[in-house]
Amino acid sequence: MQTSARTPKLINLLIALSAILLIGALWMVFAYAPLEQTMGIVQKIFYFHVSSAWVGFFAFFVTFVGSLLYLLRGQDRWDRLAVASAEIGFVFISITLVSGMLWAKPVWGAYWVWEMRLTISLIQWLIYFSYTLLRRSLAHTEDAARVSAVYGIVAFVTVPLSWFAIRWWRTIHPQVFSSSSSGLPASMLATLLVCLGAFSVLYFTFLLQRLRLEKLVRERLAVLSAEADREWAA
C-alpha cells in the first residue's frame, strides 16, 4: 500500500505526547527536583545524560533485533527497523557523550575520563557510525540489508563484552542504581523516571517517523525502478 504524504495520526499523537512529557520533564528537572549539594546545578545534566544513554542502548538493541529478524525472515520491514533505530541511536549516544563530557569537566576536572560508561558510549558511538558508513557504501539493495544485518548482530554482541572488559579493567563511575536501593531521593528518582519516559516516547516518535521516511524512500525507489522498467520495455 502506498504511504500517505500526510503524517499519520499516531505520529501526531506521539509528537504531542513527547512535547508534553519533555516540558514536564524540564519543569521537574529545574523546578521540582532539589539541587544536589555537592555538584550543584551541573548535576541536572545527569537526568538527560542517563535518559539519552538508556535510549541509545535500547535503540541499539532494536537494531540487533531488526537485523536478526531480517536474516531469519528476509522481510524488508525488519531492515527498515534496524537502519532507522541505528540512526536514532547514533543521535542519542552523541547526546550522551556530549552531556557526559559537560558533566565530567566540573565534577572530575576533565572533559574525558576513561571510565566504564563513557567508554562504552564511545564504543557504541563508533559502532553506530561504522554501521552508517557501511550502509552508505552499499546501494539500497538486499545486499545492503543483509550485510548491515550481519554487522548489526556482531556489533551488538560486542557491547556487553566491552562492558565487562572495561568494568574489570577500571571504573570510577558513580553507581546510579544499586541492587538494594537507587541511592537517590524520591523527588530525584521521580524526575529521572519522567525523563526516561519522555526520552523513550521521543525515541518511538522519531522511530515511527524515520520508518515512514524510509518506507517513502523505498517507495520512491520502486517508482523510479518502474519508470526504468517502462523505458526498458520500450
Binding site: 564504543i123 563508533l126 559502532i127 558508513l133 557504501s137 550485510v147 550481519v150 556489533a155 560486542t158 566491552s162
Partner: peptide, 25 residues
C-alpha cells in the same frame, strides 16, 4: 562482509576496530 562494498580497504578497519575492543583489553 566488506568484500563487495566500495572502499573495502578503508571500511574493514573502521568496522573491525570497535568490535575488537573487548578482545584487545
Amino acid at each position: 562482509l566488506v568484500e563487495r562494498t566500495r572502499s573495502r580497504e578503508m571500511l574493514l578497519p573502521v568496522l573491525l576496530m570497535p568490535v575488537l575492543i573487548p578482545l584487545l583489553i
